[in-house]
Nucleic acid binder design. Structure first.
Length: 431
RNA sequence: GGAGAGGUGGCCGAGUGGUCGAAGGCGCUCCCCUGCUAAGGGAGUAUGGGCCAAAAUCCCAUCGAGGGUUCGAAUCCCUUCCUCUCCGCCA
């Protein structure tokens, strides 16, 4: 949500920001609407003032035993006018609101211009993709060899874009999640949260998923939404609150399933468990002051990178271009892990600074002790990281010619000491 | 699912039609006194918006939300959301 006061003061800057998002200039249109709203609002308020005066006169007259017929008649008139003006104001401000809430966040100066993901700019890499002496398999083939990865059963149960993991494969998924949570809570100070997976429409609105992207979400019959990411739950923890700045930053992490309809993704990544309707993810959310959010963003990125480094998974970090960055984000870095089976870098974490964009939608504010003035907080979110995709990466990067897979050392304590997944050995689990 | 109770400022808690944006208490901030591991006195302490070049000791709105009755509503009526209690059901 954009700040109308800021647009009033900086209409040309607003149009430039829209242009970077590929949107037509609309500041003058918006300001026209804004003027209309304020015109009827001011007029209505002046009448309300008069009405309040008359009410006081009537009250005094009653007490004094005097007649107040004239005042009562005037109020009757004014009431009608107020109702009319308020109806106009409501309609106009509704229209203005509809326009404002559909405009994406202003992007940061460092966001590269671009039409789509091919224009994202790589900033750095870590690790080196392995040189395989054999043709590396993808995770689907490895799943067949190892066992414990069953797309047929999942299709029978639920349809496409689901998977059933079992045995050591299921345990590996859980090990990954536990490992990530332990890193973020013990080493980086994130507070672990276990919260609802079903949320109200207002909550989805707060993070910017509604109303524009309703099609990406699963809605329940009682008009709730399955969360597409724990960002929704964690970020909204501060909705409609005024936080003392001394308590910032707030850092939350959660392991949750994520549900995505993948509308519009038909035909994309149909093979394997790369793009599912349901997957596990460890999410990181920070709430900070405007001053601190850029540094918090870097910190959050290093938290996510640490996970991949400990898992010895090669990755690169890219800055999303104006054509690829999400609706609510001001600046997004994606971490892309190397998948030997695809010979591609694939997103495994997305780290966004949303600045005050979500905070406005949620009415999440903060205040310093001295100034007493409120302002909107900055919210940041990032995957720390996607568990399903991490599982894929481990299988593909850790594979051997016979199809067995080395388990990263940091996960072995979570796997009962198991060092390798052996062909046919993934199910049933041992240890 | 059935029956009942309730939602007031950071917190507690008054207030059942008329200077109520809201008594009182707690907490917090500042000042004074005292003087030391206590206490006392005073002042201040909601949010959003409008107007304005800007601001205000100017104006409007807000007592869960929305609508209604009334000259006037925190107070009455309706709807809705939420919380709590009991019963039922249940991981």
């Amino acid at each position: 949500m954009h700040d109308i006061v800021w647009i009033r003061a900086n209409p040309q800057a607003f149009d430039e920001a829209c242009a970077r998002r590929g949107l037509p200039p609309q500041a003058s249109l918006i300001l026209d609407m804004d003027r209309k709203v304020r015109h009827s609002r001011t007029a209505a308020q002046e009448l309300q003032q008069r009405r309040n005066e008359l009410t006081r006169l009537i009250s005094a007259a009653r007490r004094g035993g005097r007649d107040a017929a004239a005042e009562i008649a005037e109020v009757g008139n004014i009431k009608q006018q107020i109702a009319t003006l308020e109806a106009i104001e409501r309609e106009d401000s509704g229209k203005l609101h509809n326009v404002l809430e559909a405009i994406p966040n202003v992007v940061d100066d460092t966001v590269p211009e671009g039409a789509d993901e091919t224009d994202n700019v790589e900033t750095h890499r870590w690790g080196n993709p392995r040189n395989f002496a054999f043709e590396p398999r993808d995770h689907v083939d490895l799943g067949v060899i190892l066992g414990g990865m069953d797309f047929e059963s999942a299709a029978r149960l639920s349809g496409t874009r689901f998977v059933v993991l079992s045995g050591a494969m299921a345990r590996l998924e859980r090990a990954l999640a536990s490992f990530m949570l332990d890193v973020h809570t013990r080493e980086f100070g994130y507070v672990e949260v276990s919260g609802p997976l079903l949320v109200r429409p207002e909550t989805a609105y707060g993070t910017g998923n509604l109303p524009k992207f309703a099609g990406d979400l699963f809605r329940t019959t009682d008009n709730r939404y399955l969360i597409p990411t724990a960002e929704m739950t964690l970020t909204n923890l501060v909705r409609e609150t005024i936080l003392d700045e001394d308590t910032l930053p707030l850092r939350y992490t959660a392991l949750t399933p994520c549900f995505r309809s993948e509308a519009g993704a038909a035909g994309r990544d149909t093979r394997g468990m790369l793009r599912q309707h349901q997957f596990w993810k460890v999410e990181l959310v920070s709430v900070t002051t405007p001053e601190d959010s850029p540094e918090e963003h870097r910190r959050m990125a290093s938290c996510a990178e640490t996970v991949l480094q400990r898992l010895a998974l090669p990755y690169r970090v890219v800055t999303l271009s104006t054509g690829d960055i999400g609706f609510s984000a001001r600046l997004t870095w994606d971490i892309e892990v190397w998948l030997p089976g695809q010979k591609k870098w694939r997103e495994i974490s997305s780290l966004s600074n949303c600045a005050d964009f979500q905070a406005r939608r949620m009415a999440a504010r903060c205040r310093t002790r001295d100034t007493r003035k409120t302002r909107f907080v900055h919210t940041l979110n990032g995957s720390g990281v996607a568990v399903g995709r991490a599982l894929i990466a481990i299988l593909e990067n850790g594979q051997h010619e016979d199809g067995s897979v080395s388990i990263p050392e940091v996960l072995r304590p979570y796997m009962g000491g198991m060092e390798r997944l052996h062909p046919g050995g993934a199910a049933p689990v041992d240890g």
